[in-house]
Amino acid sequence: MKKLILASALSLCSFGALAEVAVIVNPSNANALDAETIKKIYLGKAKSFDNGNKVNPATQNGTAIADEFNSKVVGKSSSQLNAYWSKLVFTGKGTPPEKFDSDQAVIDFVAANGDSIGYIDSSKATDKVKVIATF
């Protein structure tokens, strides 16, 4: 609980002071994505890449980088986003992004899945994944 308050306090008052968020895809993925499309993917409003393949998004579960991504890119707090997804999940209108507990787990998932997208602390990026945007 204390950690959560600290994390959200930090993300509120320190754009840039905290780690930068990097949005990553599989190196084989040649689709270009702008910030608006990334937001739509994480809201379940965009479901496919430009080439028609279904997007397989990964998110992080309660990490500081998740709070950062949710507020900077999706424009909602983590609880607001949870409430938003609960409306879709329990009415069969959408499947939320798969949840992972660390940057490394997201990297492994994105490296192994051609149509996946994820976000990590940009300092953790490796050549197993391709960074397509930073926030």
């Binding site: 949870n82 409430a83 609960s86 409306k87 329990f90 009415t91 069969g92 209108k93």
Partner: peptide
């Protein structure tokens, strides 16, 4: 398309009436 037992879409919150968290 869906078929089966579902919620009647009377209201804005009909679909997630039971999901207090929403």
């Amino acid at each position: 398309f869906s078929a089966g037992k579902m919620r009647v879409p009377f209201y804005k919150y009909s679909d997630f009436l039971d999901v207090g968290y929403a």
